[in-house]
Amino acid sequence: MWVRLQAEIFSPGAEIEAFVTHHKDAGAVASFYGSVRSTPEHPVRSLHLEHYPPLARKQIETFVKEATERFDLIDAAVIHRFGTLARGEPIVLAMTIAHHRQAALDGVSYIMDWLKTEAPFWKREQGPAGHTWIKAKRSDDDAAARWRPPTAK
């Protein structure tokens, strides 16, 4: 289990490849990779991620540990970036290894759902008309709530 917070860009493919190296015979690997979104209706030049480093690490480590115990994962890891990211760049990568597909997928969902609402990161978009802080979404709270009761708040 590990958590990495970094400003540097990373390659999701290379990270997944390295992550599974010692568990290629486990049976199931799942991952989620989120990137900086920009659409014609809502163009974004870059995304700035502010964070509270010690608490961000602590919170994500808690979610990774909880997911590992709850879904009997063989391994789990998260990379989360901070600082200024260009459109299309990876922001976050959550990876799990288990003996079965559902456990691996649920592990990734669990980590991502809690990370969205309970890891101290704040996104600020830079668009053609200036910058705006992204508002938290009610649907993210609902997604996390389905996993209750968690041990982390």
Binding site: G34, H51, Y52, L55, A56, H80, I91, V92, M112, L115, K116, T117, E118, A119, P120, F121, W122, K123, W133, I134, K135, A136, K153
Partner: peptide, 22 residues
Amino acid sequence: VSHDAPISGVRMVAIFPPMTGG
């Protein structure tokens, strides 16, 4: 913590809006 948490002896308080990680 929740808002009913006691603050005696606390050294560092962080106050922030809802988080938008991921």
